[in-house]
Design a protein around this nucleic acid. Structure first.
Length: 194
DNA sequence: GGGAAGATGTTCT
DNA sequence: GAACATCTTCCCT
């Protein structure tokens, strides 16, 4: 695979957060761990802003945890949710303006066996990467990936343009999930038909 | 197949 | 000390 040719550059992430969230659907997330590489098609995202978005970590300004959202676009923001699960975000927008896209769902491509081992699935009742906490387990993403540059081909985590481009899926725009504030804006994006 | 609630620990007030 | 961008299990229909 010609990974480096298709990697999304920083310009892609430096745009408006909701546009980045929508355009990330159908793209391919790649995570290398050791000798193996896992990848999956992004099928669900959410956009998070700063001021004016009560659900965002950056709502109250820059804190030790959220300061990364004010930084350079294309940086991975990984944080612990509910003390249990790691969630993967990509910083978006111009430098100094807080914003990030939460990767909520993947469709596994490569390394599926590795994912199953890491998820330790006992029954086939649940899918592999259909939630933000599950996909980080399956992709072996954790706090050590926080602050990595997703737009850098030398990183072991990055996102590719899908090849060949497939724009056949439908994009659905809904309320965000699992939050109590800021539900009025439709900032969750789901790809249907992948 | 779908809804409800407990587990869990870091961060901020 | 309260809040929280979730997952799993259990129980119901």
């Amino acid at each position: 695979m010609e990974y480096k040719k298709n990697i999304l550059d920083r310009g892609f992430y430096s745009r408006d957060t909701s546009k980045v969230a929508r355009d990330l659907l159908g793209k391919v997330l790649v995570k290398k761990s050791g000798r193996t590489a896992a990848s999956g098609i992004i099928v669900e995202t959410e956009a998070y802003y700063g001021p004016g978005d009560p659900a965002s970590h950056a709502f109250r300004g820059s804190t030790p945890r959220s300061s990364i959202m004010f930084g350079k676009a294309g940086i991975a923001y990984v944080y612990l949710c509910y003390g249990v699960y790691w969630l993967l975000n990509i910083v978006t927008g111009e430098e100094g303006v807080p914003g990030a896209v939460l990767i909520r769902g993947l469709k596994p491509l490569d390394g599926i066996e590795e994912m199953q081992k890491r998820r330790n699935i006992s029954c086939g009742r649940h899918k592999l990467t259909d939630g933000p906490g599950k996909l980080t387990i399956a992709m072996d993403i954790g706090y050590s990936d926080n602050g990595k540059d997703v737009a850098d081909p030398k990183s072991d985590i990055y996102i590719l343009e899908n090849n060949p481009p497939d724009e056949s899926f439908i994009i659905k725009n809904t309320e965000r999930i699992g939050i109590t504030n800021g539900k009025d804006r439709l900032l969750r994006y789901i790809a249907i038909g992948l």
